[in-house]
Computed example of a mutant assay.
Amino acid sequence: MRKLSVFASNTSEAGADIHLAKLLNLRHDVQRLAISFQGCAAGGTALRIAKTIVDSSPGARVLVACCDITSPHIDRQNEEDLRDVSMMISTVLFGDGASSVIVGSSFSLELQEKPLFEISSAAQVLVPDTSEHITIKLRPSGLHVDLSREVPRAISTNIAQVMSRVLPGFPFYNDLFWAVHPGGPAILDAVEQALELDRHKLAASRHVLAECGNMSCAACLFVIDEVRRRAVKGGEDPCRWGALVAFGPGMTVEAFLLKRCQEENV
């Protein structure tokens, strides 16, 4: 078992990956990798790295554990933070969360493993001239998250080109299910309009945003699980193939082509 621990913003060592290994009683020679300061794209980054590992190591299992606690980002005793509109907006928009998934190269009938999705392809794309659109900076008062008003426009302008790299054989985006990182209403609207998606295609993302907020690196796994739950319950999007998309500092886009393996009970 290899383990990827993902933290959108983590500033302590020894890291939580070590504590998690102890809590799970994993072997002392388990291979660990902690991913920090990748923002909301980190969950996608971990999935892409996990796919690379299992593709080259038949039979491997990688535990991807994502966690981010954003509520302490604002210092309520700091007048500068309280006057910072972008800081206040990000504080209201974000939420705390943790999620995990196991990625493998094949499944074992003997162990009664039941895979849910296959990662068919994955890509990471850096959007040009957007390095200051999403930033996370460490200040004396804590971590400062700055989201530019240009983020939705940048996503709208570039998302079709990014997805063409991951979905070359899918010219009709409405033939897919969609799990888009719930970065905010404007971001989801930008993706929906740029790709001309039917309104219900981002229902899972909007549900997670409304119920939990933007949980940064943990959010994309919440959304894909919501997609699964809706399909099991006879939801409105039974498509076999789908796309998972996450956005982060850079601006970085992590994009995946997924395939449902089977339907499972909740």
Rank of each mutant, 00 (worst) to 15 (best):
M1S: 07
F7R: 14
A8K: 04
A8H: 03
T11W: 09
T11F: 13
A14H: 09
L23T: 10
L24D: 11
N25Y: 04
N25P: 00
L26I: 01
L26S: 06
Q31A: 10
Q31E: 14
R32M: 14
R32A: 05
R32W: 10
L33C: 11
S36Y: 13
F37T: 02
Q38N: 14
C40D: 05
C40F: 02
A41K: 12
A42G: 13
G43S: 07
T45N: 13
A46T: 02
R48G: 01
K51V: 02
T52S: 14
T52E: 11
S56C: 08
P58C: 00
P58W: 01
G59C: 08
A60G: 04
R61P: 01
L63S: 01
L63T: 03
C66K: 07
I69C: 06
I69V: 15
D75R: 03
Q77M: 05
E79W: 05
L82S: 01
V85R: 15
S86G: 04
M87S: 13
M87H: 06
M88R: 15
V92Y: 10
V92I: 15
F94H: 13
F94G: 04
D96T: 08
G97F: 10
S99A: 15
S100N: 12
V101L: 06
V101M: 08
I102L: 07
S106W: 05
E113W: 00
K114Q: 15
L116M: 13
F117A: 02
E118T: 14
E118H: 06
I119E: 01
S120W: 03
S120E: 13
S121R: 15
A122C: 09
L126F: 15
D129A: 07
H133N: 11
I134A: 02
I134P: 01
P140A: 06
G142E: 02
L143D: 09
D146T: 13
D146M: 04
D146E: 09
L147V: 08
R149C: 05
V151C: 04
R153L: 12
A154W: 07
T157N: 12
T157I: 06
N158Y: 07
N158F: 05
A160Q: 11
Q161R: 13
R165F: 03
R165G: 03
L167E: 08
L167R: 08
P168R: 04
G169L: 08
G169M: 05
P171E: 09
P171R: 11
F172S: 12
F177E: 00
H181N: 06
H181D: 03
H181L: 04
G184V: 03
A186Y: 02
L188F: 00
E192Y: 00
E192P: 00
Q193K: 14
L195D: 05
E196G: 01
L197E: 02
A204N: 03
V208C: 07
V208L: 01
C212A: 11
G213L: 10
N214A: 14
N214W: 10
C217Y: 05
F222P: 00
R228M: 09
A231S: 09
K233H: 10
G235R: 06
R240S: 02
W241G: 00
L244M: 15
F247L: 15
F247M: 11
G248W: 11
G248L: 11
M251Q: 10
E254V: 12
A255Q: 06
F256P: 03
L257R: 12
L257V: 07
K259Y: 04
R260F: 00
C261F: 02
E263N: 13
E264L: 12
N265M: 07
N265D: 08
